[in-house]
Design a protein around this nucleic acid. Structure first.
Lengths: 339, 339
DNA sequence: ATTCGATATGATAGCGCTAACAGTCCCATA
DNA sequence: TATGGGACTGTTAGCGCTATCATATCGAAT
């Protein structure tokens, strides 16, 4: 089945290295972990033996004995939109020097799956957990609360964290965007987003958005949802649908940049005057899209910073406040009229 | 520091559940793993106790005792290009029913980092490893070979795998693309790609590409490399640079779809006749880009299928051939003249 | 010379779980 | 009635490490 050259009868253990180098297992352990005093000569002998044998320590045994695990669980809904990879980058960067290692679990926005991913991870006794969002099943919350390790819920701060939270207020983000749009004089505004019952953050943005509209005496003129498929293409299709149904809309607010970009391309194709006749805005600030014919208005989600701050807390480097709120900045781009 | 409601003095163990339910630890263990015969009554009692206590098993201890770990290490260079998330999807899908769980490690195309990620993963004694690429440091290769578990190297099959390989021939992919381009009558061809000394697969594509060119008596007219930044934007810039330097090129071959898309947008902006005056092609077949004004010619990398096949091998579901070659299909899109 | 304290190494006892074996009970079968 | 075999539960002995304490050695300080 599996070929291996020197065909070890059983996997190597400390004992093998210990015998090969003529010292006790304990000393080998010390050398390999750089802990405690070992003479330079012994150290060399041991390293030599370990190297030639090809010994790889067994962290399972090590973790059990020492009650320490250098793993941090990271639970996120998806890898395929640009947002979480960037959060991961922030986390990895910050964890780099600490000896901690991130382990990723993906939930696909399914609460059941989230629960089981969290359970699975906790059963490896990580030294911390970073979980996207504040909405979890009661069981998941309970497990996290009981775990006795630092828990950081990221992305969102509109709610009550189990332990710590690092993120932005999506409610506020929606509101701010609405205010900017209103200030620019747009009046007939539509929303286009994903049909994801469990994307609570998109939902909160929409809520904040509508609140600000209604405060200005406005209401959404139209709304359109989708699920699955190429976001760029979906953006086009949804935009076409909305424009056909409500030809008089003058602004399109998208729940993410990708579909916004699709919409933008569609509008340009149609020869619409952007941002004069119609304005557009997305959400996230994905760098990926720099290079489009026009720069889409958006609001960055502070992804990198969220990852960093969360990792700092887990690593115990942060004087931990319960909630760390970050403030996204509006990037007006070229698709909102300048007031 | 970390707040937890019932403040357990020490983490719960089997013993706690055992005492709470009045049976032996062994029986609790059996119930929790659904193994062996346990009476319905006992089972209920135990589950009840475990639930109310909020017991989460300790897989570290379990793995040490049983010598079985339900983890599969997946080592990939990056999460931020669209290719690996899709491979992950294929892996997760296939592993779903098997009880195995993927654990991801990212190397950022750095051989040193790859080595240490592999070491770290192996030290958790996973039941299998899936590693991108066939090029590894000698130490990394040796570790993988010694591990005594199924190893699957993915994406590429142009080389000698440690154990198994699932992928496409990038060399052939480059060649095929060149042949298609030549057949369409293009003659003055340039290459635009990433400046990544360790992206061996892009390198192999270029090699195959040039070989086919030279076989047809042609040679690259120009080449341009970049690193970092927004791919779309870089694609534009590089394209501008090449067109300025070599105004007479009639085809641009990009090392990935993202920069290809940037180039396409640039050409269209410039009012160039695509694919008449100039043709373009990328690589990967990222669905993400459906929705661009024109569909970029590309060659899909069979990402999903690679993930699936690799997972099958690791899960022992495949009658394992050493090399599984997949064959990418050319998607001519709208940016190559039809012959 | 005695004592002290660094420095270096080893012996012992688990960490929390599961494999493997050993019962115990009860009922069907001979 | 004896016997065998399920069905169920418990006991024992580690898995491969590390924490902790014990021991040995040696030069410096008293």
């Amino acid at each position: 089945m599996t070929k291996s050259s020197p065909e070890p009868r059983h996997t190597l253990t400390l004992r093998d290295v210990s015998e090969a180098s003529g010292v006790s297992e304990m000393t080998v352990s010390r050398v390999l972990r750089n802990r405690g005093d070992v003479s330079a000569a012994t150290r060399e002998k041991v390293l030599e033996a370990a190297r030639t044998l090809g010994y790889v320590p067994n962290k399972i045994a090590g973790a059990l004995a020492s009650q320490r695990v250098n793993l941090v669980g990271v639970v996120i809904p998806s890898l395929s939109n640009m947002v979480f990879p960037e959060v991961m980058t922030g986390i990895s960067e910050t964890l780099e020097g600490t000896g901690l290692q991130p382990v990723v679990g993906v939930t696909n926005y399914l609460p059941d799956r989230e629960e089981s991913v969290i359970y699975e991870m906790l059963s490896w006794r990580p030294s911390g957990m970073i979980v996207a969002g504040l909405e979890h099943s009661p069981a998941a919350r309970a497990m996290l609360a009981q775990a006795g390790i630092p828990i950081v819920e990221i992305m969102d701060i509109d709610g009550d964290p189990v332990d710590h939270a690092v993120g932005i207020s999506h409610h506020r983000a929606g509101r701010k965007m609405a205010e900017a749009i209103i200030a620019a004089g747009y009046k007939r505004i539509a929303f286009l987003g994903t049909q994801m019952p469990n994307d609570f953050r998109a939902k909160k943005r929409l809520q904040g958005f509508e609140e600000a509209l209604s405060k200005a005496g406005l209401a959404l003129v139209d709304r359109e949802f989708y699920s699955g498929g190429s976001a760029l293409l979906k953006g086009r299709e949804m935009t076409a649908a909305v424009l056909a149904r409500s030809p008089d809309v003058d602004f399109l607010y998208y729940s993410n940049d990708m579909i916004g970009a699709g919409g933008l391309l569609y509008c340009l194709d149609q020869g619409l005057d952007v941002p004069g006749r119609i304005g557009l805005a997305g959400f996230n600030g994905v760098e990926l899209l720099d290079g489009l014919p026009r720069k889409l208005a958006t609001m960055d989600a502070c992804r990198l910073e969220i990852g960093r701050k969360a990792a700092e807390i887990v690593a115990g480097q942060a004087t931990s406040t319960d909630k760390v709120e970050l403030f996204p900045t509006l990037q007006p781009g070229d698709t909102i009229r300048q007031a």
